[in-house]
């Protein structure tokens, strides 16, 4: 599969448009960087990845002022397709119902950045305990604060108090 073939597969299905950049490393491996303007069209790209028998390798998120940037990294037989989108309301459209391989990646974004993948089949935490607030990577948290339950509330101490019988 070439990047041009992939572009042909999505170009008439994203009405609000997108940007496509291609880069090549010094070893000759090509990658595509697709930036969509409307986040819902991630589903179109995911469907195209599925049609080409590709998989979601992982997804990255980071905070940018008042929004979050999410980048999905897909693979189609050795070619990486990076899909970038922005969300201002901390939600994205989950692509896990289309690509099962995105399951853990989206769940991790939810607990690390508090960005909700709407329509994700699982609500379970991936790595962090339920006692820790979502979105721990949104801000710098000192170790001492982390040990208190990463929250403005007293999650940890309320839990301890409940179990202590006076």
């Amino acid at each position: 599969m070439s990047i041009e073939e992939f572009n042909n597969a999505i170009k008439n299905k994203i009405p609000s448009g997108y940007e496509l950049k291609e880069d090549q490393d010094s070893y000759g491996n090509s990658q595509a960087w697709i930036t969509i303007r409307e986040k819902k069209y991630a589903l179109v790209v995911a469907n195209a990845i599925k049609a080409f028998k590709g998989r979601c390798v992982v997804a990255t998120a980071y905070k940018e002022q008042n929004s979050h940037v999410v980048i999905y990294h897909f693979d189609i037989d050795g070619v990486i397709i990076n899909l970038q989108l922005k969300t201002n309301d901390s939600t994205i459209y989950s692509i896990t119902p289309i690509l099962k391989s995105a399951d853990w990646a989206e769940r991790e974004i939810r607990e690390m950045y508090s960005v909700e993948p709407v329509g994700h089949p699982s609500n379970d935490r991936l790595f962090l305990d339920y006692g820790l607030a979502k979105g721990v990577l949104n801000e710098y948290i000192s170790l001492s604060k982390m040990q208190m339950g990463v929250s403005d509330t007293d999650i940890l101490w309320s839990k301890v108090k409940k179990e202590v019988k006076l």
Binding site: D25, Y27, G28, N29, R55, V57, D75, G78, K100, S101
Partner: peptide, 28 residues
């Protein structure tokens, strides 16, 4: 469907070894 890699993929008949599919360094 799950997107496994490495010897786990190879044990189920899938070759997605990066050294072959997207060679880097001396493999390229």
């Amino acid at each position: 469907e799950i997107g496994v890699t490495g010897p786990v993929a190879r044990g189920s008949g899938i070759n997605n070894d990066v050294r072959v599919k997207a060679p880097y360094s001396l493999y390229a």
